[in-house]
Amino acid sequence: MSIKVYSSIFAVLIGSTAFELAIIGQPLARNVLVTSVMGLAGIKALLVALFFQHLKDEPRSVSSLLLLGLVAAFILLTLSLLSIGALHGV
């Protein structure tokens, strides 16, 4: 990949971080805020993984390994939080 691609990804990362900081101050509903900030973080992480870690050029089996890990962590998170009633009303 070219330096140009890396630079534009880098610009997007910086920009979206700035955007995160900008929306924090806004009078938004809590769940809108959480969703958008975590969503932005997810997009940033995905960009780093796909382009900087070159996941998009690796065999799909490699990303599957990581995806499985993410899914496992997600299951733990969801069911454990559900079990103490923390996700009620979300």
Partner: peptide, 21 residues
Amino acid sequence: IWTFMASEVIFFGVFIGAFLF
């Protein structure tokens, strides 16, 4: 290395999970 990283995903996932819990 990538396989090892998959285990790291869980490791930090659990730390973040414990924090949220």
